[in-house]
């Protein structure tokens, strides 16, 4: 797999767009899924996923071959998703740091014992419920959780993608898991 990708990258650098099409085919589902789970809307997910590949194409010469290609691609996608989320963000938002409480966010101050109303539960598929709760996570916990459980990546890969120390990644996953537990416990 890696050998094929390396070969295709060389062809792309020479300007061969057909070779790039093969790369897109290989990664399109995982990149699209990452964007969809981060943004929660198929139209935006498609737009940002396409943009991810566009950036990868334009910047392919700056790709460091010591890195896994997927790591680089997921990094571009995550950054674009976070940029997009920030552009949409109202003045206050769930992950705004609360003054004087490091690491504590508005999210963790919202009473957690409020399950979804019964009727809502019935009308939503489990998938939708889970997606909805993922979208309520502050973006920094959300990206860690999505990379870990939706993309099934190791903590080390996540730390490379997000360019964060391993300890920080673990903390984000722990907090994300805990927030989701509180929301999904009654499902």
């Amino acid at each position: 797999m890696d050998a094929i990708i390396k070969k295709r990258i060389k062809q792309v650098i020479k300007g061969d767009q057909d070779a790039f099409g093969e790369i897109v085919e290989i990664y399109k589902n995982s990149v699209y899924q990452l964007c969809f789970r981060m943004l929660g809307n198929s139209h935006e997910a498609e737009d940002i996923a396409q943009e991810t590949f566009l950036r990868a194409y334009v910047n392919i010469k700056s790709f460091n071959q010591d890195l896994k290609f997927s790591t680089w691609l997921f990094r571009i996608a995550t950054n674009l998703c976070i940029d997009r989320l920030r552009k949409k963000k109202p003045d206050y938002y769930l992950d705004a740091e609360v003054a004087g409480s490091e690491g504590l966010t508005m999210y963790s101050q919202i009473p957690s014992d409020t399950p979804l109303p019964e009727t809502e539960l019935e009308s939503l598929e489990l998938q939708e419920i889970v997606q909805k709760e993922i979208l309520k996570l502050p973006e920094k916990y959300r990206s860690a959780i999505v990379l870990k459980y939706i993309e099934d990546l190791s903590l080390n890969e996540i730390s490379e993608i997000l360019e964060l120390p391993l300890g920080t990644v673990k903390t984000r996953i722990h907090r994300g898991r805990e927030a989701l537990r509180q929301q999904l416990r009654y499902v």
């Binding site: 399109k28 589902n29 990149v31 699209y32 899924q33 969809f36 789970r37 198929s42 498609e46 996923a49 489990l126 998938q127 889970v130 997606q131 993922i134 959780i145 459980y149 939706i150 993309e151 099934d152 898991r177 989701l180 537990r181 999904l184 416990r185 499902v187």
Partner: peptide, 14 residues
């Protein structure tokens, strides 16, 4: 919770 989150991970690009 972990099982729930993992269970939604099978999406395809359009």
């Amino acid at each position: 919770t972990v099982a729930f989150v993992k269970s939604i991970s099978n999406m395809q690009a359009p």
